[in-house]
């Protein structure tokens, strides 16, 4: 690391990285080095190439699809790439994706903060370590298993709860529920919340753990209760970490495919009620309608995938930027 640049006898050449002059000077011993550097730098570059290729290929296919679309890609409430003329639009998918992810966030983030606090500040130590293991294992359960559980266990059990909501809150319109299986956007939201819980929890847990011990002890010494300690010293310290953790969770929720594809009963309509079945998400639509799609249909799905790709890039990029800025402050 530093030692290599210190041993270089000639004055360092301008520009970053090991200077080529130095390597030529000791070609005999450094041949292996050059191969190794080329290999490792090459794989780094390969990663960048893959990322660029993903963007380029998706864009090319998407452009092909858009040029043949006879509806408005952003506002059409239809997905008929096989029809003549082909009409497809992402309005319903965008609505479903964003709404279900937001429901998931609204449920998962408070619960995740609660669990993170439980592990770091409340739980007896004997319970805290196994619990963080369990939460990590929750992250390892494959999404298709969540989907199976959601479709065959969660959905039948939610019907009663939904009619209860309908009785007391049905007048809002948003929480109205008519009979039928509870394969709706709200159910998706609950399922996604369970699925993103582990990642939000584990990131927030790490942040809460780093809260300065001195602040906490000072607050305790002043007679603060445990909640006041948390409110005064832990939460302000952890705020940006929690925000970025939730954005990472949001990124996961946006792109989740199989759990949504198994649970949701899709339709190309936007209904005001979140509890009634219907709607769709980008990823779910790709997985469910792939096998019936022809050449153009696949391109149309790729176009919707590109939108999803850009959406997750934005969300994840924002999360990473918040984390990076926080590092500068705390370093």
């Amino acid at each position: 690391m530093d030692i290599t640049s210190a041993t270089a006898s000639p004055p360092p050449a301008p520009g970053a990285g090991p200077s080529p002059a130095r390597q030529q000077g000791r070609a005999a011993t450094r041949a292996g080095d050059r191969v190794f550097l080329a290999l490792s730098r090459g794989s780094g570059i390969l990663l960048l190439v893959i990322m660029a290729a993903i963007a380029v290929f998706l864009t090319v296919r998407a452009a092909n699809a858009l040029s043949q679309d006879h509806g408005n890609f952003f506002t059409a409430f239809e997905w008929n790439a096989n029809a003549n003329p082909p009409v497809f639009g992402i309005a319903v998918l965008a609505f479903g994706t964003i709404v279900s992810s937001l429901i998931a966030m609204a449920i998962a983030v408070p619960v995740a903060i609660g669990i993170a606090l439980f592990i770091t500040h409340y739980a007896p130590r004997k319970l805290a370590t196994p619990l963080s293991y369990v939460i990590d294992l929750l992250a390892a359960v494959p999404s298709i298993v969540y989907g199976l559980w959601g479709a065959l266990f969660l959905v039948p059990h939610l019907g009663g709860l939904y009619s209860w909501f309908n009785d007391y809150l049905g007048w809002t319109g948003i929480l109205a529920y008519h009979d039928g299986a509870a394969r709706s956007l709200f159910t998706i939201g609950i399922l996604l919340a369970i699925m993103i819980l582990p990642i939000v929890t584990s990131v927030s847990r790490e942040v809460f753990r780093q809260a300065p011990r001195m602040h906490e002890e000072a607050a305790l010494a002043l007679g603060a209760t445990r909640w006041e300690v948390i409110r005064l010293s832990v939460l302000p310290f952890g705020r940006s970490g929690v925000i970025s953790a939730s954005m990472l969770g949001l990124g996961r929720a946006l792109g989740e495919t199989m759990a949504v594809a198994t649970v949701l009963s899709p339709s190309f309509t936007i209904s005001t009620s979140l509890l009634d079945p219907g709607g769709g998400t980008f990823a779910q639509n790709i997985a469910s309608s792939f096998k019936e799609s022809g050449e153009l249909g696949k391109d149309a799905l790729i176009a919707s995938g590109l939108v999803l790709f850009v959406l997750t890039l934005l969300v994840n990029g924002a999360a990473r930027m918040i984390i990076a800025r926080r590092k500068e402050y705390s370093a």
């Binding site: 990663l47 893959i50 993903i54 792109g255 790709i286 790729i302 994840n316």
Partner: peptide, 20 residues
Amino acid sequence: FVDVMTGIPSIVAGLFILSF
């Protein structure tokens, strides 16, 4: 970009290989 790649939805990775 490694950070960004971590967040790529699996279906998008599938679409990329599909198109390529």
